[in-house]
Design a binder for these strands. Structure first.
Lengths: 314, 314
DNA sequence: TCATCGCCTGCTCATATGAGCAGGATCGCC
DNA sequence: GGCGATCCTGCTCATATGAGCAGGCGATGA
């Protein structure tokens, strides 16, 4: 296309999209046939001169979703738009809303849903509507008895999801990470705990997020890890955690000893489930999102536009 | 419209604009009739959920142009898009390009074109193509013999416009501002100078820019005014200058004594001409652009999107 | 309870747009 | 300069979209 056609296609686009003229009218104005105008418009679109954006907190990016499915082998993907987002909190909220929408629309409705806990999961629980499902039982898939004043959000999350879905919650009565391996093994052999974990293994679907490997982690906030612990993990290559287990950029466990002290479903168990829904948004989580998707930890990903682009770039 | 319809309209817009589905297909997917889909899309547009942008350096904003004509009484308006502009220079370039395009397309072709000088005018002269007109004579409308090393850009501007338009330039051989009123009157009574000014008065069209009242002014750079002089003018209410004459926000001369020492067409002469093309772009020129348009100093305005919005806001 | 109003729905018909094709101009290549 | 290949143009026809309208539905007030 030469420069004249390029300019004409811009003029045509202005008249078509901003002035709502018909291609025929544009043809008369620019002394072209209407077919030529149609072709100019098609070229303007194809060359990216025309940008159409859907500006709405609930808007999604279907082309990115398709690419994630096709190029990253996901069963499904939900990508929320970042257009007009002012803060990280807003992005988090949009993503949580989308995850809640996804759960609500999920068919067949899972009878048992395994959930992790954290800021993202809590927000999802808040965005679910009463009656989002009828009779969904929720089971925690990793340890979540908090050590400090934030105690209870893990439980509150699972309970809220269950109650709003007309079912009940089964909590995993255990810390996330234990100090000694022996204690962890003792807890896991407890009949109640073992039963919960067994139930968790049998869930129809799993919903979890991932944490970045930084000092803002809920594990630091909850007192399971110190900032120094996190620094060590990062040095060993950790990019973040999934259900309390820290992974490197290939999705491998960074510190097997630490992992052995972590209560809950293992990553391999998660990987082998047919419906694992990961909800991961925000710039700080790009590396861990990448690891999760590459190593097949989730079959469904709910994320934001920027993260999706990051995943597809590599 | 209730929330359900709002969400549906977003889903429909995604499928329509991002996935190129027909309204009928969308209807099947969302279990709606195609008419409902059409209405949802219309509402999404009307409520501003859909934003269509034309991304191109040469793109214009026809709705803003129309509003400037209708609401600000301009004969014509050219508004360049600011989408994707990185720097003030880029904006300046786009606007100069648009001014050059406007001149080239102008019908009837002016036989004599009066021009001012400055950075904007120089850039316009550079963007004009050889043969943009056949036989346009150019005449300077304000004094432009520079006092320092930048000497010659005023002349170069007029000459370039004339040469590329297949005509010749008539320069006004006088400084822009003289130190003493008597000198100014003496120069204006000189036969050559008087002849040039007479020719300038008879031009078919005028092309000029406006300067902001700040220390970056070409008058400071050229040595006609000191930064202190500018500060005084600003204190008296100056928002900028047109053909070397400083005006306040109502378009009135700020300092009549200074104005009397300024050589060239007066503002009232400019106001009474049928075709006065002002080219004004950039945030720093918003106040002076406002004054120029409000006081009827131009009949045609070439500007950028942000400036246009500023003009229409008030 | 019922009449009335106004909005919404799904239609018909007119118009706008896109797909595909045959002829012709243009370009490069010898 | 001649020749073929390629691209481009303007058409026909099929499809998609928008305007406008009649009927139905629910809300509202007597």
């Amino acid at each position: 296309m030469d420069e004249i056609d390029e300019l004409l296609s811009i003029r045509a686009a202005e008249l078509y999209y901003e002035e709502n003229k018909t291609q025929d009218e544009i043809g008369q104005a620019l002394r072209l046939t209407r077919w030529k105008v149609g072709r100019l418009l098609a070229q303007a679109k194809q060359r990216g001169f025309i940008r159409i954006e859907i500006l709405h907190p609930r808007a999604r990016r279907l082309p990115l979703e398709r690419r994630l499915r096709d190029e990253r082998g996901l069963t499904d993907a939900i990508v929320v738009s970042t257009a007009g987002v002012q803060s990280a909190e807003e992005l988090q909220e949009r993503t949580a809303q989308a995850a809640a929408d996804y759960l609500t629309a999920l068919r067949p409705v899972p009878r048992t849903l395994g959930v992790s806990w954290g800021r993202t999961l809590f927000e999802i629980s808040q965005h679910l509507r009463n009656g989002w499902a009828t009779g969904v039982n929720v089971v925690q898939i990793n340890g979540g008895v908090s050590l400090n004043r934030r105690a209870g959000t893990a439980a509150a999350t699972a309970v809220a999801i269950a109650q709003k879905g007309g079912g009940s919650a089964t909590l995993l009565p255990s810390p996330a990470i234990l100090e000694r391996l022996a204690t962890k093994e003792a807890i896991e052999s407890d009949r109640v705990v073992a039963g919960v974990i067994e139930l968790a293994r049998s869930a129809d679907a799993y919903l979890f997020s991932a944490g970045a490997a930084d000092h803002n982690s809920v594990h630091v906030e909850s007192g399971y890890l110190s900032t120094a612990d996190v620094d060590v993990l990062v040095q060993k290559g950790a990019v973040g955690d999934v259900v309390g287990r820290y992974i490197d950029s290939d999705g491998n466990i960074v510190d097997p000893a630490l992992d052995a002290r972590t209560v809950g479903l293992t990553l391999d168990e998660l990987r082998s489930t047919p419906l694992a829904i990961a909800v991961i948004a925000g710039t700080s989580k790009h590396p861990v999102a990448d690891a999760v998707v590459r190593s097949g930890l989730c079959s469904v990903l709910v994320t934001d536009e920027a993260t999706a682009l990051h995943l597809l770039d590599g």
